[in-house]
Write a protein that binds this DNA or RNA. Sequence first.
DNA 1: ATAGGGTTAG
Length: 785
Amino acid sequence: MPLRFEVKNNYLHLLEACIQSKSLTEAKKIHQHFLKNTSNADSSVLHKLTRLYLSCNQVVLARRLFDEIPNPSVILWNQIIRAYAWNGPFDGAIDLYHSMLHLGVRPNKYTYPFVLKACSGLLAIEDGVEIHSHAKMFGLESDVFVCTALVDFYAKCGILVEAQRLFSSMSHRDVVAWNAMIAGCSLYGLCDDAVQLIMQMQEEGICPNSSTIVGVLPTVGEAKALGHGKALHGYCVRRSFDNGVVVGTGLLDMYAKCQCLLYARKIFDVMGVRNEVSWSAMIGGYVASDCMKEALELFDQMILKDAMDPTPVTLGSVLRACAKLTDLSRGRKLHCYIIKLGSVLDILLGNTLLSMYAKCGVIDDAIRFFDEMNPKDSVSFSAIVSGCVQNGNAAVALSIFRMMQLSGIDPDLTTMLGVLPACSHLAALQHGFCSHGYLIVRGFATDTLICNALIDMYSKCGKISFAREVFNRMDRHDIVSWNAMIIGYGIHGLGMEALGLFHDLLALGLKPDDITFICLLSSCSHSGLVMEGRLWFDAMSRDFSIVPRMEHCICMVDILGRAGLIDEAHHFIRNMPFEPDVRIWSALLSACRIHKNIELGEEVSKKIQSLGPESTGNFVLLSNIYSAAGRWDDAAHIRITQKDWGLKKIPGCSWIEINGIVHAFVGGDQSHLQLSQINRKLEELLVEMKRLGYQAECSFVFQDVEEEEKEQILLYHSEKLAIAFGILNLKAGRPILVTKNLRVCGDCHTAIKFMTLITKREITVRDANRFHHFKNGTCNCGDFW
DNA sequence: ATAGGGTTAG
């Protein structure tokens, strides 16, 4: 039975009233009643009911009704598309637009702004361009609304040339059109162009409104263009925009990004209305500028005094503060607090939490949290990969990276910034090569940060010439590039090249930083360049106003000590303006070992022990000093003391990469599959080595056993095992690269020289300090390391 | 208007 006219009119009136009052409960009641009392749907009632659901933000219910309407009006099409464009999902709007065309309904000038907004929300460039061509076809391109929407779409998608072209074509441009163009420039970091446009619009008699200002402030902050920022602030004051929360927060954030925290705080303090965003911006500003105390105080104030609910953004900033302070207990408390709050743990915040755990050194907790994260994205993987590397577990980092590849999430630039150092640590050249290839394919290989990591990777994998090649091909170097290249030369014992590069840097008028000098001095020390070291240490503070830190002094003691100038090194330590720490005494102790200075060695060792047990290396060094002098009892005594202190010697471990697989060996290791071949090879080498004059340096063995047995113990040191494995698995004549976690053992250092003669191979060992390039019976470290 | 992961030294 068709709906009677008067009944229908009642419905329509009722529905119109509900649309005004946006009452969902009423809407549902009417809908129910309507369904009960009518058998076939009336189009005008369905139209109104759909609009009612839309006005109550019930997109799903509206859509269900909409799909039942045989011939919806263009207005209704526009309204449902608008609902999708505002609330998402955006592709819903685009799909609807296409079905509209398909059904032969002609879109009008109101349709285009909505569907284009959906396109820019998705950055769906192809869809947008196609829709643009339709608008053109229907003669709507020149309409102010449509054209403004097109400018906005192209600007938001970063196609600024087309945005500019359309913008210029407009005969009448209102403030909205200008804002679209300006916000587009701002979004893509063109701060100067955006500011230029603001001036231009005023010349054309259009007054910037608060949206104009709000649109441009983020890029001003990002560019740290304080001058522009202040001018905009002045404009806001004149027009009384600064009373608004949004403008106020924008200004605050701009000042914070320009490192003017006092201005930012001033604005924050005088703001009449503050919301969560204002608080978050202020707290985030403090964290970014390393003012943790202020950030944490403000956070407490926010939740305790002002009883505001922190948002995920606020919590993220505070967690980053915990990470920077390595304040694990506060971080854990925040994690609990987040769980209690419920439902705010989004993926962004999850990634920040994960990174906080990793940076606070609890990598197991980070991994556990990572495993439970669902979903994970490329940021989660990047955080855990670099977290593992930072915590000294590059092998785990690479295995998680492999998991990532299997999971179908593409590694991005930042992921690779974690993977490359993992390759560096392991000297995993094949992985490094693959990574480089992937970076080229993805178009990341020209990025400065990536190139810096590549320089480091190649030099730590023994390919210093490749590192230099990357350095040469870069279009822009930053100071990190120079530092990485200088220390690359340094660890290969190429001190003159390091110095040469440093001179190039100066010749280009660039400014070295504190780390440059650590790299330079360290390079001098590896190559025994005493004069140059002294010269640049003095020049550092005199000519470059860089105050020497402990790290620089350690390098200096290293330089002097290795060269045998032990008294001068000792004198240097006593004259430092700060208290010496364990590390600098260790550098001196190491010099005492090289130059067999027992008295000073004992004195220094006592100093180290009085500073607390920092590492086992010091005990090893002192006992090496004793045993080298034949003082076995003292050497043994040191080992006992070490045990009493509860310190275990870190086991020596060496590894070698064959066909992309890293094989690791621990001293005396009997577990490898090819064990018997390795043993046979080592025995075979020993015979020949002895024939050439090799004598095992038994002073490196502490057990009280026969000389012959000592020879056997030395023969199964991890570096020798790895080399033997390399000889067995790499073609004759191919060079061998072995990496060791500790300093290479003295006996091994001698033995490897003989091995290069016997096998006619170059053997490279990267130990904890530097590279040793063995060739034709010599090592390029000159036997000082 | 606020917003997650990152390169160099020891």
